[in-house]
Design a binder for these strands. Sequence first.
RNA 1: CGGGGUGUAGCGUAGCCCGGUAUCGCGUCUGCUUUGGGAGCAGAAGGUCGUAGGUUCGAAUCCUGCCACCCCGACCA
Length: 492
Amino acid sequence: MSEFKKVSRTENYSEWYNYIVDAAELAQHSAVKGCMVIKPYGYAIWEKMQADLDQRFKATGHSNAYFPLFIPKSLFEAEEKNAEGFAKECAVVTHYRLKSDPNNKGKLIVDPEAKLSEELIVRPTSEAIIWSTYRGWIQSYRDLPILINQWANVVRWEMRTRLFLRTTEFLWQEGHTAHATKEEAIVETKQMLEVYAAFAEDIMAMPVIKGIKTANERFAGAEDTFCIEAMMQDGKALQAGTSHFLGQNFAKAFDVKFTGKDGKQDYVWATSWGVSTRLMGALIMTHSDDEGLVLPPKLAPIQVVIVPIFRSEEDLASITTKVMEIKKQLEYKGVSVKFDNRDTLKPGFKFAEWELKGVPLRLAIGMRDIQNNTIEIARRDTKEKKSIAMDHLVEEVGSLLTDIQENLYQRALKFRTEKTKIVDSKEAFLKVMDEGGFALAHWDGSSETEEKIKEELKATIRCIPLDNRQEAGFCFFTGKPSKERVVFARAY
RNA sequence: CGGGGUGUAGCGUAGCCCGGUAUCGCGUCUGCUUUGGGAGCAGAAGGUCGUAGGUUCGAAUCCUGCCACCCCGACCA
């Protein structure tokens, strides 16, 4: 943050991204490979996301619970597809004790005598441990549905990591529900997708496409995977949340049956759904600019920062009196306010710093304002600055915060709309991919074609949009008939 | 896991080819002057040169192993 180096989004997008994460003090690399330290300011944003999502989960009837970090290998392997899908990225605990190295003073070695009889898998996702537990909870249709969410950390040993977007350990929530009927489980799956979409759009100000994944992109162990897909400012896609209809796969794997009203036994129907700290990456890449982070008011830990402009201590004292009054009024209205009264930094420095941190509104107040009963108000999203009468401040702040929230959404939507192209040829397709953006193209529906497109054109089907318009056409790649267009993009 | 690159004070760096105990900027600390868009002057502190070995009278510099990180692929939320 000491450096005034500026990195341009257009010149080098990933360098810019790293710069924002670092400069806005959101997170940093840790002493552990692939794992990040989420710094207080970054964590405050995550906490606001959590708080809003948590309330939405509860409003739809879910309760929070907590299941273990470790999963015995025998449970983990029970659902074959799920196990296979995650096997190559699992951290495994094999021992439970260390001891002093007899050959190397002050060093420790794994005690070979403390080998576990059964290895423990550090959860990459919790279906296995949860469904092994649900077996004991469910006997009758009266025990259903089970609607549980857990806030947790998971570990996926990825080859290449990036702060927030893909780290070895990450924070998330995972909902795991059990239902008596297929229909009810599907309704749940779709409902949670709607919850995610509403959160993304209303709170993150990030437009998303709701859709369904193709078989290739489906969650390991799911019958269907629904997702929300967002477009980042480089035109690449980011999967922002998923909701899975798991069918009876886990119920069968863990033998979870219930007796229905009719006295007959059947396997339970399942869903799972999750969003992660990856949303932090999505938030950054959707709104921020070359000046730094840009936060939607609904997620900003500090919504309004007040910078005093003073020459003497007496000036600061009288400004402070006024500021305290303003702060109280704004806080009464539910606005979070920070008074930056550090006396060792010049106003210009503070302006730049708070812009870097994405604070939506900045107020500047000096002796001139005190005399004129005015105050300067500057918005982060458009950089507009104006002097207003002090008497109108509270309502002005309220309406500007609302306006910024809306403007960020509209700006992102406009960007996505402009970068989404209807494509009917390989050439046009490649052009869109190279420029960055979504291509709406016909696809013949086969996994083989999808695979070939991925290899040759480096793009994947992000989703088949829900309520997609049916339109006869021909696959842009194979020429075979197709009944609808799907969303293609290069993805994170 | 493949290709490329980097590691020197809190951060960013020079020095490395051609071995002689480390340069500069930012930040930090003290003092004074400043404060409506990233302050100025003066002084000060701060470094096992990623790590472990090796060569040498002497290693940031040469050699070997290891580790970490970044970028590009493959894999993935």
